[in-house]
């Protein structure tokens, strides 16, 4: 019984890995003040392109690279249209989301149901023999290790390096960053492309591992991108919380599967989609803290309680101040 639970939880960690990577990519993009709404499309398109690349070459690495390249390309299109051509980030992001989705179904049509190489788990020597933790974290595929690694790396990158500081400054107050000699739009270009490349890596993780192959609209990836966006935003642009959100989401999905048998009253189809609304609703209520009425409401409470809830002077969960706002130097 206990080992079943362990296997289940290890599965949660594995199936959350693409979401973790994509959400961290989107976090990086949004930290620079750019909103990339095309995540859902990028994941689908890169899942398709990564699968075809791996199928054609028989090489997994080629698949992952193709996925990242696809993402980077879409990221560049977004940055070009919004920064250079000054179009709305929301409009371009949405169009790209729809375009990439349909493009993936269209181009992937010929490759439906083919078998591509699949990434197998590689237990890490010694570490995988640690009881419980070993089978949870260290008996996984390299991509899962990468997703686990991406959390501390992005945290260190954002908070402990010069480049992370530049990234945060651009997203918070671009005009002040400019006054300190930072090329704001170049930074935004870079992080939009980098973030989208990470989102693009999530695609092949699905199509070459978790859900091997390409099955068009039956692949079941449509919608994941919106979850990624929601997790990024409601996770407060903090890689650690964002990753936590991803694990929570997959945990819900797993529970849905487990209880499918026990909860006979609820149709299984509902249990399968339930984690999506559940996740988003949860995150939405968490986000309510940012509303003005919340602040004015808790200011009526006694000071210690007020200080506990108040976001003033903490701002940990607040959006990068310039998110979605273009920067032009006159």
């Amino acid at each position: 019984m206990q080992s079943e639970l362990l296997i289940g939880l290890a599965g949660v960690i594995a199936s959350a890995s693409p979401i973790v990577i994509a959400a961290i990519g989107e976090t990086l993009t949004e930290k620079s003040g750019m909103l990339n709404l095309s995540v859902n499309g990028i994941i689908l398109l890169s899942a398709m392109s990564g699968f075809i690349a791996a199928y054609d070459t028989g090489n997994l690495i080629a698949g992952y690279l193709a996925g990242m390249l696809t993402g980077a390309l879409i990221g560049w299109v977004l940055a070009f249209c919004t920064i250079t051509l000054n179009q709305s980030q929301v409009a371009v992001g949405l169009v790209l989301a729809f375009l990439c989705r349909d493009l993936s179904y269209f181009l992937g049509n010929d490759f439906m149901g083919f078998n591509a190489p699949v990434l197998h788990s590689t237990p890490l020597p010694f570490l995988s023999e640690i009881p419980i933790l070993g089978s949870l974290f260290f008996d996984q595929t390299p991509m899962v290790y990468l997703s686990l690694l991406s959390i501390p790396v992005s945290l260190v990158w954002i908070n402990r390096t010069k480049f992370g500081l530049i990234l945060r400054s651009v997203g918070e107050r671009p005009e002040a960053a400019f006054a300190r000699g930072i090329n704001v739009n170049k930074v935004r270009y870079l992080y939009t492309i980098l973030g989208s490349a990470l989102v693009g890596l999530a695609g092949p993780i699905y199509s070459l591992g978790l859900k091997p192959g390409w099955k068009g609209s039956m692949t079941g990836l449509d919608g994941i991108g919106w979850i990624v966006l929601a997790i990024t935003i409601f996770g407060g642009w903090n890689p650690f919380r964002v990753a936590l959100g991803a694990y929570l989401f997959e945990l819900l999905r797993w529970l849905g599967l487990v209880y499918q048998i026990k909860l006979t009253g609820v149709p299984s189809q509902v249990l399968q989609v339930a984690p999506f609304p559940l996740m988003i609703l949860t995150l939405m209520f968490v986000n309510m803290k940012n509303a003005e009425w919340f602040e004015s409401f808790i200011s009526l409470l006694p000071p210690p309680i007020y200080r506990f809830f108040s976001l003033k002077g903490k701002r940990r969960k607040a959006a990068p101040s310039s998110l979605g706002i273009p920067f032009r130097n006159v």
Binding site: I233, Q269, M284
Partner: peptide, 23 residues
């Protein structure tokens, strides 16, 4: 009134609507 951007509120409610109709 809730401080949630309409894009994400909308997407979230889309999922809820799907689940509701399936149910």
């Amino acid at each position: 009134y809730g401080g949630v951007n309409e894009i994400f509120a909308g997407v979230g409610l889309n999922f809820v609507a799907t689940a509701l109709s399936l149910w």
